[in-house]
């Protein structure tokens, strides 16, 4: 890849790293990443991947920006309240790095279109805030064989795991079924420390870059749990479940499921 003078300056701190170099930066520039959600997690993930120069970033979300988002959703601002979140994020990311092609999809991802939406992307990032989407994205990535970097946050606690279909565990190996509606409170009900998605989203973006570069150890077969109140990171081993309903030896889930009914999916 021939870098322009601007690109040499922009990516100089990457190019200097032995693990990245010009070749690694070229891989980053050629990568295509699909981000589910333009909220607490999607904002920092998209922001840092844009800064890193990921070639194409798609971001999907159906919501519009509200004042209550601004405590943690750093791609949005008072100037974009009322605007679709994906459009607000696209403007922010494009202002940061015009090298990156941002594709804004203002819609709710569904079992009918997810496989088609992700098919041209190398890596999927889940920054969704609800269980129906989380399981839908997991199942679709397993079926499509796409690496998935999954993150979740609530109150003062966050989780990250990286799912490489065929190699490690999937989300259902960890939690077989979504919890019943109402059992696990949403951020709206339980609250969330505004900086927490910055930590978890930053970890997700790091996992994405390491997958692109093929360097270091990713959270394959592991769940990283962060307790912000106690300042503790814990890594939990997550074995692949041979009888997993979607990634096991005899999968019973061969078609995507919409769990939407009964769940409050309001922001």
């Amino acid at each position: 890849m021939d870098f322009t003078d601007d690109q040499l300056q922009r990516y100089s701190r990457h190019i200097i790293l032995p693990e990245v170099g010009g070749k690694g930066q070229a891989r980053i520039s050629n990568a295509k990443v699909f981000i589910v959600g333009a909220g607490g997690l999607g904002c920092p993930v998209g922001y840092y991947l844009t800064a890193a120069g990921v070639g194409t970033i798609a971001i999907i979300d159906n919501d519009t920006v509200e004042m209550s988002n601004l405590q943690r959703q750093i791609a949005h601002s008072v100037n974009t309240i009322g605007m679709p979140k994906v459009e607000s994020a696209k403007r922010t990311f494009e202002a940061l790095n015009p090298d990156v092609k941002i594709i804004a999809l203002q819609k709710r991802i569904s079992k009918d279109d997810i496989l088609d939406l992700i098919k041209d992307y190398d890596i999927v990032v889940d920054g969704s805030d609800n269980f129906p989407t989380r399981y839908l994205v997991n199942d679709a990535c397993v079926i499509a064989g796409k690496p998935l970097v999954s993150g979740a946050i609530l109150r003062f606690e966050g989780q990250v795991t990286t799912i490489i279909p065929g190699e490690g565990h999937c989300y259902r190996c960890l939690f077989e079924e979504p919890p019943p509606p109402g059992l696990v409170p949403s951020c709206q009900e339980a609250g969330v420390l505004g900086v927490l998605p910055g930590v978890i989203g930053g970890l997700q973006a790091t996992e994405v870059l390491k997958i692109i570069l093929g360097k270091g150890d990713i959270l394959r077969g592991e769940l990283l749990v962060y307790d912000a109140l106690k300042t503790i990171f814990r890594k939990v081993k997550v074995p692949k479940n041979p009888s997993c309903a979607v990634c096991g030896e005899n999968p019973t889930i061969t078609e995507l499921i919409d769990y939407n009914e009964g769940y409050c999916t309001m922001q």
């Binding site: 870098f3 040499l8 300056q9 100089s12 701190r13 190019i15 200097i16 170099g21 010009g22 070749k23």
Partner: peptide
């Protein structure tokens, strides 16, 4: 610096 090393490194990589 750091563009001196950036240029040198890209040359070595090639």
């Amino acid at each position: 610096c750091p563009y001196t090393f950036v240029k040198a490194k890209l040359a070595i990589e090639s």
